[in-house]
């Protein structure tokens, strides 16, 4: 019994000792870090002007110097644009930032790997390293971040390969995929458009491509809309997004799909179809939009009212009619939306 009692006390002492040691270690680490920070600040002040001007700096052969150069590169990358970028990259390379960032691609901390990949994508000579190491990283954030950075610089691998390597539409569901597609569409819109006809590409990836292509003037919208219209016939989670994209494109060949969406049994689809009708200036939708002012769902009534306000005199006339002799819900919607937008 006494042995157990002693064990309990010894265990308490052990926990206390560990806590005390940990706090001491934290304090020592903080003091050491503060000292290091002062040295880093000295180097930073020396490096900053030359890197900003894109001029070679007086380089020290120390690890700390390369680290500061890499940190500065990350910091300044968000500020330096246009013609200054080339000189900045040259100065950063000369200061050893590229080597240090390439080393960080294998850091244990995923945030460090991600930041390194984003910055290193600016260095033309490290394009292959980023593609090989960061796009194959075990962390999904690092993979997507590297792809975004490479695509932004116009140095991404082929889009089909990216979709497969990142698992876009299957394991990778981030909204940032639309940004990625937009950057990819800027450098090779036809390759992005080709995704729509690839049977192996998941629908969610195609939808991201569609969102990006809807913003691009570089591709012929007719086949794109044909695919979207066909896809929008199927009730499903993706249908509202497709209708929103159709509204954004505003192409006449999208009108039929939008009108069909207004009759959907699903209220999110009716809502986005109403929104799309307003954006696409679909005047033929006015009678149906007037009916939707009496929809059981508030979102549908609201978007229908908004769309009617966008549809010029025909839309406003429909709103006035609903406000005077519509059913109670339609009357309330029409009256309030007109008053809200100063149209009474």
């Amino acid at each position: 019994m006494t042995g157990k009692l002693v064990f309990l006390w010894e265990f308490s002492l052990l926990l206390s000792a560990v806590a005390l040691l940990a706090i001491s270690a934290l304090l020592l680490a903080r003091v050491a870090r503060d000292r290091l920070e002062r040295r880093r600040e000295d180097i930073r002040l020396r490096l900053l002007p030359s890197m900003l001007r894109g001029q070679p700096a007086e380089v020290e052969r120390s690890r700390l110097f390369r680290r500061v150069a890499a940190d500065l590169t990350v910091e300044l990358a968000e500020l330096v644009r246009g013609n200054d970028r080339e000189g900045f990259i040259a100065a950063a390379t000369q200061a050893g930032a590229g080597k240090e960032l390439a080393r960080r691609l294998r850091s244990r901390a995923s945030q460090d790997r991600l930041i390194a990949a984003e910055a290193l994508a600016m260095f033309p000579q490290y394009e292959g390293t980023v593609s090989k190491v960061a796009l194959g990283d075990k962390n999904a954030d690092v993979r997507l971040g590297a792809a975004l950075a490479l695509a932004h610089e116009g140095r991404a691998p082929p889009v089909g390969e990216l979709v497969r390597r990142l698992g876009i539409g299957s394991t990778e569901r981030s909204l940032l995929v639309v940004s990625l597609m937009r950057d990819l569409a800027r450098s090779d819109p036809h390759a992005v458009a080709a995704l729509l006809y690839d049977f192996e590409i998941p629908d969610a990836a195609k939808l991201a491509a569609t969102d990006a292509l809807a913003d691009s003037a570089a591709v012929d919208h007719a086949p794109l809309i044909a695919w979207m219209a066909e896809a929008s016939e199927e009730e499903g989670d993706l249908r509202p997004r497709i209708l929103r994209a159709l509204g954004k494109v505003g192409h006449p060949s999208a009108h039929e799909a939008i009108l069909a969406g207004l009759d959907s049994e699903s209220w999110p689809v009716r809502t986005t179809a109403a929104e799309a009708a307003g954006r696409a200036a679909l005047v033929t939708a006015v009678p149906r939009l007037s009916e939707l002012l009496d929809d059981g769902q508030w979102w549908v009534r609201f978007r229908a009212g908004e769309a009617l306000m966008r549809l010029g005199s025909a839309g406003r006339a429909a709103l006035r009619k609903a406000a005077s002799d519509g059913r109670p819900a339609a009357r309330a919607a029409a009256t309030t939306i007109m008053a809200e937008q100063g149209a009474t």
Binding site: S12, S16, A19, A22
Partner: peptide
Amino acid sequence: LAFLSVTVTFGIFVSVATLILEE
């Protein structure tokens, strides 16, 4: 007292570990 001591020091240990995470 022994059990009380284990409970209290465990609590302190957890708090210190949280401080480490924060730092």
